[in-house]
């Protein structure tokens, strides 16, 4: 055993190292970036990131820009409010699941007020009445229950999610009122599309900031997402992290 090192064929060990590297590149990413504990699947993620950049450039962004330019502001606000209202039911349930019944009740009050006085949710009257809009999803609920994030992932179309939040997203999609509330498939799919375009359009102003601020766009978006998630999980008051 002790002689092993001395007798090893240097070419063979280099080949072994290369093989290991290629294998590691498949699961993590071996190239320029040393292993980041927060991003164990970096190789996969960066590949998906460039796929998504392609989709975004040729499809999502032009759609969002067209929507942004063509649709007058009051209509855009109405669309945003409508989907916001639809989402309040699941937000309220998640607040309940996280042991915050007062917040959950407030979300259901929002749903009732905006669906009636706010005319099917087109106007966010509840916010003006002092019922603040919350931001919850099943991934946050899992985090509150103590589930670890399982590492960062980047998916085409839906973008940044940790492993936990990918599972959370699947549950969110299952619980989505658009899925179980609309029986007509073409109407349902159009509704999904409008919502997607509306969300993408709301992110257009951030595009320029990220383009200008980032040295490496992939890392910038990843780290912003991880920070943002942490803040969401703690409802905007995350405990301060120690500096190293």
């Amino acid at each position: 055993m002790a002689n092993d090192n001395k007798n090893r064929d240097p070419r063979r060990s280099r080949r072994l190292a290369l093989g290991a590297c290629a294998l590691a590149a498949l699961v993590s990413g071996c190239a320029s970036t040393a292993n980041n504990p927060k991003d164990p699947y970096e190789g996969f993620n960066r590949a998906m990131f460039s796929v998504n950049e392609g989709i975004d450039t040729v499809l999502a962004k032009p759609l969002a820009k067209g929507y942004d330019a063509a649709v007058p502001l009051p209509v855009k606000a109405g669309v945003g409010n409508f989907f916001g209202n639809v989402g309040d039911l699941w937000i309220g349930i998640n607040n309940g699941l996280q042991g915050k019944p007062a917040d959950g009740a407030s979300d259901l009050a929002r749903l009732l007020i905006n669906s009636t006085i706010g005319i099917f949710g087109l106007f966010d009257v509840a916010s003006e009445m002092g019922f603040e809009k919350h931001d919850e999803d099943f991934g946050q609920t899992l985090a509150r229950w103590g589930v670890g994030d399982g590492g960062y992932l980047f998916w085409p179309i839906i973008g940044s999610r940790t492993l936990r939040d990918t599972g959370g997203f699947a549950v969110d999609a299952y619980a989505d009122p658009v899925r179980w509330g609309i029986d007509n498939i073409p109407v349902r799919n159009s509704t999904y599309l409008v919502r997607f375009v509306d969300v993408r359009a709301s992110l257009l102003p951030a595009d320029k900031v990220v383009e200008e601020a980032a040295l490496d766009k992939y890392s910038y978006i990843r780290d912003a997402y991880l920070q943002r998630r942490r803040s969401q999980i703690y409802d905007g008051n995350p405990p301060r992290q120690l500096e190293d």
Binding site: D223, S231, Q232
Partner: peptide
Amino acid sequence: GISLVTNYREQ
């Protein structure tokens, strides 16, 4: 919730 400064750490 996104610190403009520490978001540069990894980069």
